[in-house]
Design a protein around this nucleic acid. Sequence first.
DNA 1: ACCCAGGACTGAT
DNA 2: ATCAGTCATGGG
Length: 305
Amino acid sequence: MTLAELPHISLSLSPHGLDLDATLASGQAFSWNRTTDGRWRGWIDGRPCLVWRHDEALRAAGPELTREAVVRYFGLDLPMRDIFASFPTDPFLERAREFAPGLRVLRQDPWETLCNFICSALKQIVQIAQINAELRRALGERVEPPLLHAYPTASRLALASEAQLRECKLGFRARHLFVAARQIAQGEVSLEKIGDMPTPEAREELMRLQGVGEKVANCVLLFAYGRLEAFPIDVWVERVLRQLYFKGSKRVKLARMADFSRDHFGPYGGYAQQFLFHWIRNDPRALAKEAKFPAPPKPGKRIRR
DNA sequence: ACCCAGGACTGAT
DNA sequence: ATCAGTCATGGG
């Protein structure tokens, strides 16, 4: 029995669509693989599944996979029209959206997302995916029938040795992941409770975990908890902000860029961030010197509160 | 050989 | 509060 032989779920997509290739390979999820026939093999809420586009619908197949889980994972319940309407007039963001209109922000499992981004420090996206696969293979529970490895639980990682984690190509991140797993396994931090907290408190709570700073916390808030206001600033987004939005200004602090991003991009800023991130990494013309943009937005003065 | 990667932590100011 | 040094590993 293969995933493709299971009965599939079919969901009609809004006119805004869904670009699986852009979405599943845009550095927010790390356990999806593109099959030779253009479908995607991966996991939704800890269950293996296969997803693909069929005309104007999204199809998904997997044991115990529900419509609700797929809708929630891909954010098909989100008011995309309102989200896009909330964006500022911004030639860079408009260009980024034109580059991949169907790019979407996912709502993934908090634990795996937390681990992925603890492992993301100074790693390229392909390497984060490699680490994810290594951890599954070495420590993950086998799932039948597709004969795959689930992502290891917190208690399983806490039970492993740090040396075992290092064998998964984690490098200096092995200690971070090991300690964080123990913190979760022992209930020092509850990923369930974080889901009920206001975003600022949730961020503080996540940052109590080893290996979780502001950036990783924002990634988990955005890509797992659906906090669309969370605005992760990694080296790529920092590059966009410096070269396009703070053009000409030298020595701009990270904190000021974070303040600007919150004020400029608004309550769904994290969504804007993902468009910018994907654009800047994949469109060679994005940061080209000859690229011309009309009326670039100005950062303006720092807003005090 | 050299630089970079979806950074966080530590210790010195 | 801010800032440089340091932390493994693989790809280009």
